[in-house]
Design a protein around this nucleic acid. Structure first.
Lengths: 278, 278
DNA sequence: TCTTAATGTTCCGATATGTGGAACGCGATT
DNA sequence: AATCGCGTTCCACATATCGGAACATTAAGA
């Protein structure tokens, strides 16, 4: 198969957040195209995807055909492409069947009852945090749009907390891959300041988000280590700055750490070899 | 694809129902393996997947490696495989971004308020119904495990309702592909009885599930047609037999039909060419 | 209406990639 | 020590993928 020299452009365009190089191997290309369509806002026309994926016309057309055949994409009557139902089927299984989430959920709830604010559960994947559960006041929404969302580690409480658990070489490998994007005036802009804060987090056992990802939003987070598993995760309590002061976050930090520790221990038991888990 | 004895009906049927023989093309094999792992109950060891997928050892090993590289699967320390986080990310987008669901949701809610019973929204895909939304009394569960689940058309209210919208040739093509499995004593066992009932459904505009899928569970459903789209769907009100009589279902049928009609019209407008939707 | 442009689809030789049977390494069990 | 079960690696072979270019099919413009 021909080399691709266009490669890096597509990564740039496809998404700022995903570091993973698009298109290694045949499957890689297929998934990259799939992601390009799914992550877009509306139905995508052939030309849109062509520009976004950087694949040659012929290749792209075949990839799309196969994705449609497999039910991962659907082609509308106006020839544009959309996510297919099979994706939903696959996904719901991987969420509902996620035992780590099950273990953590009661703790998220009690943390929510204590604080009255939104509680998140996130898992570290390379340089991103993927949110796998959320408990908030307005329970009317079932599967929050937040779930499944991936955010950069360096500007989220859970992200920084999770990083603090990594061995130094691994941490440095990840930091080297990060492109620091300034979401707010308080966002970390360099590896140095981030690493310095992580040293503090290791000492304190908890991390803060001081309006680093979104202005007027603060959180306190604690890392979750599951012994016997490679999984690194974290929980956080998040609230608007006008309602939640830094003092308040500090007051909650103990409870957050305790919940994180409890989840970690319980998960280590319930996810032991043989049983399921994320 | 090898048989599976796991006992979870949905898995068994899901596999059979996709007419697509597992493994057409390279991508097909990859997705088949992915599905085998995701649909299973716990972490799957290499040998489990080997038996289930029917692929040769070498091939399977490479496929799994690629799936892990892409983040669609994760390999645990004990070498077993599980759904990866990237799947969750893809999925949540295809659910949250589903405009058809958005359009339908308010109608599901008001139908729930009227009846007090569980309301489902499902979309037809070949010979299955895929549930894309659900409103039930116990709102505490966010994304119901039901969502994304695929059930056979011939034994569900929504399924039979949706079939009633198809042109006869298409209907017959699908019926020919069905393997009638007797879930309960009331399940359709042959194409003849099913086709006869569909004739009635076309006349009445609504369908019933008389404990055909699960014993003690009844429902009344109505089909949703979205003009200008290939999508065929339906909604239903479901309840336990001890609480919901057939008379009650008949009494609700008008409201269900009205809601279905409203969803269809609204969707036709909001999902028109250019706008998004399933 | 005719011409031009833009978009989606199909074709085909070259070859990188996937294929799968067999051999290998390793740990557990007898 | 020998056997078994399990996961991994290897390699000659075949084929699915690649991608440029030609072809179809509208939509836009003169």
């Amino acid at each position: 198969m021909g080399g691709n020299e266009t490669g890096d452009m597509s990564v740039e365009l496809t998404g700022i957040a995903h570091g993973e190089a698009a298109g290694t191997g045949t499957l890689g290309k297929a998934v990259a195209v799939l992601e390009a369509v799914v992550m877009a806002d509306g139905p995508q026309r052939f030309t849109d995807i062509l520009a976004r994926s950087g694949q040659p016309r012929g290749t792209l057309h075949r990839l799309l055909s196969h994705l449609v055949e497999e039910g991962l994409l659907v082609q509308r009557r106006d020839l544009s492409y959309e996510p297919g139902l099979r994706l939903l089927t696959l996904a719901s299984r991987s969420w509902a069947g996620n035992r780590f989430r099950d273990v953590a959920e009661p703790h998220l709830r009690s943390l929510h009852e204590l604080t009255g604010e939104t509680v998140h559960l996130g898992i570290l994947r390379e340089t991103e945090i993927v949110y796998v559960d959320k408990v908030e006041s307005r329970q009317t929404v079932r599967m929050s749009s937040q779930i499944g969302k991936a955010s950069p580690v360096y500007c989220t409480g859970i992200g920084k907390a999770a990083l603090s658990l990594l061995p130094q070489p691994e941490l440095e490998r990840l930091v080297a891959k990060m492109a620091f994007h300034a979401f707010t005036p308080h966002t970390h802009r360099s590896a140095e300041t981030l690493l310095a804060e992580i040293a503090d987090i290791r000492r304190d056992g908890h991390a803060f988000d001081r309006e680093e990802h979104e202005i007027e939003i603060r959180c306190v987070a604690a890392p979750i280590r599951v012994s016997g598993s490679d999984l690194t995760a974290g929980i956080s309590v998040t609230g608007p700055a006008y309602r939640v002061s830094m003092e308040q976050l500090i007051a909650w930090s103990g409870a957050v750490r305790a919940a994180a520790a409890a989840i970690g221990e319980e998960a280590a038991i319930r996810l032991g070899p043989g049983r399921g888990g994320p």
